[in-house]
Design a protein around this nucleic acid. Structure first.
Lengths: 205, 205
DNA sequence: CAGATCATTTTTGTATACATTTTTAGTCAA
DNA sequence: TTGACTAAAAATGTATACAAAAATGATCTG
C-alpha cells in the first residue's frame, strides 16, 4: 500500500490530527520514507481535496462540513448524469458483467473505507468509461475520490450501505432493460438522496 | 515567473513538442533547475489537465480536441451558473469594482495568453467567491484553468476577444440592476455560445 | 510592561547522489 | 528472418545534503 493510501486511511480514522499543520519531517518518520515521496503525496492529496493549504500555516486536514457535502452531491448529480447519459447507449453485456463484479466485492464485510470508495468508483466508472469522454470523466472521478472522505458517515450513522447496494442493482437492471430515461433519473435520485441525507446529518451535528 | 507558468507558455506556443514524452532531465536543463521542481510542476500540470500520463510511455502534452472543449463548456455552463446564482445576492459594490479592474487589465494589448487566462478567471472569481462555496469554487477554478489551453483559438481564429469584453460588461450591468435571472441566463449563454463556437471550429479542422 | 529587533531554530524548497525500474539494443538459437 | 533472452543505457523514484524562507523566542529599549 502506497503512502497516499496510508495517509488517507489515517485521515479517515482520525489518527492524523485535524486542525494542526502536518509537518513533512514528522510524516516521513511516521511512514518510514524520505520527505520527497511525502511531498508528492501531500501535493496529490491537496489537489484531490483531502488536504488544504491554509496560507503560510501549512497543509492541514479540512473538517467535514455540510457545504462541501452538498457541493459534491450537487456537482455529481449534474455531471455524472450527463456522463451516464452519454455512455448509456454504448454500455454492453461485458460492462454490466464487470460492474457486477465490483458490486460483489462491495458486498464483502471487511473492507477499509478507502478500498470501498475505490470499488464504488470502479463500479460507476465501468458504466461511464464507454462514453469516451476523458475530460468529463476525469472531473467526475475527482469528485468521487473527494467524496470518499464522507463515506464513513454513510456506512456508519446513516447505515446507508445495504440501501446503496440495492440501488446499484436496480440501476443495472434499468440498464439491461435499456430504459435510458428511467436509469438516468434513478441515478440522479441515487446521488441526490444520499447527498441530502448526508448534508442534513452534517447540518445537525 | 515560476516553472509551471513557463511550461504552460511553452505548451501554448508549441515550443514543447506534442506527441513525444517529456523527459524530466531535458526539462530540468531547459529551465535551469533540478529535477525536483520539474517533478512538482509536472504533477501539478497533470492534475490541472495540461499534461496527461500516457501509461508507461511518460507524460505528454495532449492535443486540443473538440470533445474536451465541449466537456469543459458543458461543465462550466452547469457549475458556474450554479455558483453564480449562489453568489448573486451577496455581490456588492466593491466586488463589481474589483471585477471592473480586472476587466480593464484584460483590455490591454500585450498580455500573454496565460496571463489573460488568469485575469479572466480573477474577473469571474470576484463574482463567485462571495458565494462562500469553496468546494464548488475549486472545481470551477480547475475547469477555467484547463480551458486556458483553448484561449489561443478564441483570441486568434475566432477573434472572440472584443465580444468577450463586451459580454463581461453586460454581465456587470445586469448584476448592478439586480436582475438575477437575466444575469444567470446571460452567463450561461456566454459560456455556451463561446463553447459551441470553439467546439464547431475544432470539429472542422 | 509593551513592542520592536535580531539571533536561533524549525520548516520547507532545491540540488545532488544513489537505487530501482523500464527501455533499448544486441546476440544467439530455432 | 524472427523471436526470445540478456546486457547496457536511460529514465524515474527515493534518499540525503544543503539553501532559503519562515517561525520562534530572547533581549533590548522606550
Amino acid at each position: 500500500m502506497n503512502v497516499i493510501t496510508k495517509i488517507k486511511e489515517d485521515i479517515l480514522s482520525s489518527e492524523l490530527p485535524r486542525g494542526v499543520p502536518l509537518r513533512q519531517t514528522a510524516l516521513s518518520v511516521r511512514y518510514g520514507v524520505s520527505r520527497i515521496p511525502i511531498r508528492d503525496a501531500l501535493s496529490s492529496l491537496k489537489s484531490e481535496g483531502w488536504l488544504v493549504s491554509h496560507g503560510k500555516v501549512g497543509v492541514m486536514i479540512p473538517s467535514l462540513n455540510w457545504k462541501e457535502a452538498e457541493d459534491l452531491s450537487l456537482m455529481r448529480a449534474e455531471l455524472e448524469c450527463l456522463l451516464f447519459e452519454m455512455a448509456f447507449d454504448d454500455i454492453g453485456e461485458d460492462n454490466i458483467k464487470a460492474a457486477r463484479k465490483y458490486l460483489f466485492e462491495l458486498g464483502k464485510e471487511s473492507l477499509t473505507l478507502v478500498c470501498r470508495g475505490e470499488l464504488n468508483w470502479h463500479f460507476h466508472n465501468t458504466l461511464y468509461e464507454v462514453a469516451n469522454r476523458p475530460t468529463l470523466q476525469r472531473v467526475v472521478e475527482g469528485l468521487n475520490k473527494q467524496a470518499v472522505r464522507y463515506l464513513g458517515f454513510q456506512y456508519g450513522p446513516l447505515s446507508y450501505r445495504s440501501t446503496s447496494q440495492d440501488e446499484h442493482e436496480v440501476l443495472l437492471s434499468l440498464i439491461e432493460a435499456k430504459n435510458k430515461k428511467a436509469a438516468v433519473d434513478f441515478l440522479r435520485r441515487h446521488i441526490e438522496i444520499a447527498g441530502k441525507l448526508l448534508t442534513d446529518y452534517l447540518k445537525r451535528i
